[in-house]
């Protein structure tokens, strides 16, 4: 090294920070997303003066519980290096099925497992196509998208109101803590995130997800069960789609076959903004939670401002651009270092 002439304390600081970076470099994008989230909140509060209220913050979770659930499933898929375009349609399909079945008098105890199974089945189809028939995830999940969307319209061409008490309870119940409140759907979403985070960090399956995304060939040669893992992540994403369908149906008090058109893009954007690399191998559920919160906050700010909702898409697009360019720079840098 020709740079050993730096003064000692600085060198030590540098070495500490390097150790930290060596250990946690994959978390940097998530930290960045967190900073952006905080900056957004502070900026909005300074601008509006009445933004950072418990009511507003509670509403973030209430309004975007479905997106959070979808993002958790998508995180699994993207970490393996795949992508799932079907989530918005699966949510619509399971949502309308839920409303339809409840309308026909089935009890929620039957309907909820049934729609989760429906979501899982579509996920399984995608996973099998990807793993056993070498279909690109993009195309396989595209088939899933078409299938689920079509099936949603097969179930019903128009929206169906839900009058089932227990499903509506998910949304109407407000547990209050002072001015803060949370609904059962919010708790559901947070639980999904917590379970997702736990599975990824503390189970062998979760670690295999990362290994597959890092280098599938290696993972196979290391004797890990790659096939099962790859199929399972799509099933997980499908189940999350089913749960999101339930939550959205409860939220809007109705099932609607047009729900969630383009939602897959919002989900992917939220996951990427949260620091998960689309190339696979790196990412955190916590990051995706932050990504969803960033998305939700931008939406809320724009609603507050009374501006065109179109800005949301543009800002999210620009943010996505910023993130992928930064990620690209990091990759180029690390390639150069080797």
């Amino acid at each position: 090294m020709s740079t050993t002439t730096v003064t000692a304390p600085r060198a030590r600081l540098a070495s500490y920070s390097r150790t930290f970076l060596d250990r946690h470099s994959s978390m940097m994008p998530t930290f960045a997303a967190l900073l952006i989230f905080i900056a957004l909140l502070i900026g909005a509060e300074m601008h509006f003066g009445n933004f950072l209220t418990p009511l507003n913050m509670s509403a973030l979770l209430l309004n975007y519980a479905y997106l959070l659930i979808l993002a958790v499933g998508m995180t699994f898929v993207i970490i393996t290096g795949g992508i799932d375009l079907s989530v918005g349609s699966v949510m619509a399909f399971t949502g309308i099925s839920c409303a339809k079945l409840l309308g026909e008098g089935y009890s929620a105890a039957v309907v909820i497992p049934a729609i989760l199974l429906g979501g899982a089945a579509i996920g399984l189809l995608i996973g099998v196509l990807v793993q056993y028939f070498d279909v690109q995830p993009f195309i396989a999940s595209l088939a899933g998208l078409f299938l689920a969307r079509g099936l949603a319209f097969v179930v019903s061409l128009s929206s169906i109101r839900v009058e089932n008490e227990s499903v509506l309870w998910l949304q109407t119940t407000r547990w209050r803590f002072g001015e803060w409140y949370i609904t059962p759907t919010g708790i559901l979403a947070l639980s999904v995130a917590a379970i997702g985070a736990f599975v990824l960090a503390f189970t062998r399956f979760g670690r295999t997800v990362y290994a597959v995304g890092g280098n599938e060939q290696s993972a196979r040669l290391m004797g890990l069960n790659v096939a099962r893992t790859k199929v399972l992540v799509y099933v997980i994403s499908g189940v999350c789609g089913g749960l999101a369908g339930l939550v959205l149906t409860a939220y809007s008090g109705a099932g609607y076959p047009r729900n969630g058109i383009g939602t897959e893009l919002d989900v992917i954007a939220a996951v990427v903004i949260g620091g998960t690399l689309l190339t696979g191998g790196t990412g955190y559920v916590l990051g995706s939670v932050i990504g969803v919160l960033v998305f939700a906050t931008i939406n809320t700010i724009i609603a507050y401002e009374g501006a065109e909702q179109a800005w949301t898409r543009i800002i999210i697009g620009l943010m996505l651009l910023m993130f992928i360019v930064v990620q690209r720079v990091i990759v180029v840098r690390s390639e150069r270092r080797r």
Binding site: R23, S26, F198, A201, F202, T203, R204, R207, T208, Y210, A211, G213, G214, N215, Q217, S218, A219, L221, M222, G223, L224, G281, T282
Partner: peptide
């Protein structure tokens, strides 16, 4: 044939990590 995106320790133990009740 290892996974460069994971830590050294994980690469050694992947699939054979010691587990307790919390995973």
């Amino acid at each position: 044939n290892l996974c460069t995106n994971l830590s050294v320790g994980e690469n050694v133990m992947l699939g054979h990590e010691p587990r307790n009740l919390r995973g």
